[in-house]
Design a protein around this nucleic acid. Structure first.
Lengths: 207, 207
DNA sequence: CCAAAGTTGGAATTGACATTCCAATGACGG
DNA sequence: CCGTCATTGGAATGTCAATTCCAACTTTGG
């Protein structure tokens, strides 16, 4: 558990492209089947690469998993970017959460959260993965807290509200709600969970 | 996906005992390493049984996983029993949730929820497991809703409160909070998540 | 006590899977 | 233009998992 990749290997155009295709393919497969449920041969076939390419770019499967965690975090944050930077009103919070619920419905409530699923699977068995997941959740929680903090700074949210705790609570509601919805194949639990927490945040509004 | 075990096999004393030991051992291992991360040989060694015993009592690994899900659900509900039947006050809810938080701290925040972890791993890949998990969450959520319903019947909780939704929200907060705590190795997220939802429930108190 | 059925041990089978190796090809800087 | 290093293919290796088989032993009901 030290520095494993001190020297960034030189990548040519083709290399970068191949590496990216492997990560994306692995991310997709691992989203549906889990990291343990996704084999290197699976990824080889789906990405159209040879085993040596995967080991060339990632060292071993654990390295690939770490890259997938980072990739999913980047992808999620990028995808939600416009909204994520303006979570400074109750309406913005609701809209942002609603979109995830609609997205879940659109896929029949299969698959939970890309990050959450990996977290549940790897938190206890892979310490470097856990470190990556801590960072992932932090990167995701930060915009929520920032938005709430802006509301507080503008005097819209009570000064006694613990914005960090509220942000954590909302993130937890999202994760737990997604899990229940995934199991029940209905986004209802997700919507009820986030709604409850946002209502609670709303109760801290000044006025 | 139909009735797979129509005929209950006759079990002798030794049989029941062996079966039970296998389930308990498997449950313990799967709690720490996941279902996919726990091999039959692992279970054989830990429980001191031969392969034929496992296959004799459970048919295949999936059958064992189903048995583990039921076992964990029973164990959890039995363990929480006294409290679970009297979740009809804000204080009782807080105390009940606190115990889980203390329990989590006691194990260094390793391992999340026995049910939740299996749910995340199996919801999309094993339909019969998913069915068992739906039942597990229902059995767990029910006492919460019942307690809230009693509060409402006694006029302590506003008649406009949706007790089913609140119960789901609390369960989601527990699951999501546990996951974040497991990743961060600190029960803080769990405590903040359940606290927020219980505060929200409290806001529905009459008077 | 006897037969049917439950219980157990241990070996054998079959198939994946992670990883390594080696050899060939191609890009790119000096 | 050449050598170095990135890139790729494909086979080989060794391990380990899930499951099956069969043979022996034990319990139980009549």
């Amino acid at each position: 558990m030290r520095a494993d990749e001190p020297e960034r290997r030189r990548l040519t155009k083709a290399g970068r492209k191949t590496r990216e295709r492997i990560v994306e393919t692995a991310a997709e497969l691992m989203f549906h089947r889990g990291a343990g449920g996704t084999s290197i041969p699976d990824i080889q076939a789906a990405a159209g690469v040879s085993a040596s390419q995967i080991y060339h770019y990632f060292g071993d499967k654990q390295g690939l998993v770490l890259a997938v965690i980072d990739h999913q975090t980047d992808a999620k944050i990028t995808r939600q970017r416009p909204l994520l930077d303006s979570l400074d009103s109750i309406e913005a919070l609701r809209e942002w959460c609603d979109i995830a619920g609609d997205r879940q419905d659109a896929m029949g409530c299969e698959g939970g959260c890309e990050i959450g699923s990996l977290a549940s699977e790897l938190a206890d068995s892979d310490q470097s993965a856990r470190a990556g997941l801590v960072a992932a959740f932090d990167r995701w929680e930060d915009p929520i807290r920032s938005g709430l903090a802006r509301m507080q700074a503008r005097g819209e949210l009570s000064g006694s509200a613990d914005v960090a705790a509220l942000a954590t609570a909302l993130l937890a509601a999202i994760q737990g709600g997604m899990l229940l919805s995934q199991v029940r194949r209905s986004s209802t639990a997700y919507r009820q969970a986030v709604s409850a927490v946002i209502d609670h945040i709303e109760s801290h509004l000044v006025r």
